[in-house]
Amino acid sequence: MITDSRSADPTRPTLAAALGLPEDAIAAEPVEGRVHRHWRLAGGRLVRVPRMSHLGLSPRRNLIYAAEAFRRMAPSGAVPTLHRVLRVSAELPWGALVVEDVDGAVPELPRDLPAIGRALAAIHRLPVPANRAPFVDPADPLAYLLSVARDQLAPVQDRLEEAARRILEEEIAWAESLIAARPPRPSLVAADTHPGNFRIRPDGSAVLLDVERPVYDSAGVDLAHASLPTSLAWDPAVTGAAGRADIVAFHTAWAAEVPGDLAEAVRPWVLPYRRLIWLRTTSWACAWAARNDLSAALASADAATSGLARRLARFVDPAMMEEARSGWTGARAFSGEELVP
């Protein structure tokens, strides 16, 4: 979620000098994000100033990765246009990207889920190059996702609630049984596709804003991350809810926009990836709850902290975990054919 900041910031004159603009061409206050600070420019452009790297990259490598993400996804028409790269410097220790400031609204559920599906299809149908550097391109993407979950849980294993630990152990055991399977067909996937990362243009099309950490993996990564219960409830700015028929409609909209052979390749993987991405997200949430005082965070006077804690408290609730798992186990489980007809 992005919220307005009310404190003056020395970055403004630094950006003005780097861009060769008068200070009054840059918004007086930044728009805050969890990983970036955003400065609006006159003329419909936005400066994204990173604070960190999700992938643990150095500032320079992070900037190269992010710029290439915008460039490589540009032919899809589903991401903002990249206008300029501001190099890493003493004044800008993480550098910055100047991108299109998208004129769009926060998605409303379930109305905008099909538009999000079509935007993802435009990205997934891009050709996959022989040389996929600098992006993450795991030789065994299933083992890679499982290793992320294990690494997140390892430091807190003995602090997990017993019921949550049992659920996670069951899902990890299932994932281990999947590793020997033939790797799925790779696509360029954005990897962070919860609905709050999209904006809906006036014409109804969706644009993915945060594209800095794509990987080459099954398109099932993005389909899951856009439509799992944990993703639908992540950004408090996204209103509404989505039921079973809405999740099916989202996948159907995606399938209608990709080549038939890609839909066929994804169909057998769409449910396994829902489980794997849920495991990755939920293991992170459980690790956060185990490392932090959840009760104190819930009572925090800081709205961002208490809001995050409320969402994570739901994600680590064993009853909610079982509700999510009903999407792939038991009588209410989806089928691959239902999601990708």
Rank of each mutant, 00 (worst) to 15 (best):
P75C: 07
R125K: 11
E91K: 15
S76I: 01
R150G: 09
V266K: 05
Y65Q: 10
V31A: 15
H36I: 01
S205V: 08
L15N: 01
H225R: 15
L308C: 09
L168M: 00
D112Q: 11
S231I: 11
G117I: 02
I277F: 02
T282A: 10
P268I: 06
R185V: 14
A133Y: 01
V189W: 05
L153A: 03
S218T: 06
L209Y: 07
S283Y: 13
A289M: 03
R274K: 15
H54F: 09
P155L: 01
R275F: 13
R291P: 02
R166T: 14
P229H: 03
S295M: 05
H194A: 07
G43Y: 03
H54Y: 10
A319G: 08
E212S: 11
P93G: 14
E91M: 10
P127S: 02
P272T: 09
A249Y: 03
Y144R: 09
A241G: 10
V258F: 03
R84E: 04
R37Q: 04
T11W: 12
N131Q: 10
H83P: 06
A181R: 15
P186N: 12
F315P: 01
P195E: 07
P183L: 06
L57T: 10
R72D: 07
P127H: 13
H38V: 01
G43M: 01
V148R: 15
T305R: 13
N197W: 11
W328P: 09
F135G: 01
V189I: 13
G117W: 04
A105Q: 12
E68N: 14
L142C: 09
A175Y: 05
L308M: 15
L97I: 03
A290Y: 03
Y144I: 05
P141W: 05
A190M: 11
A8H: 14
E169C: 05
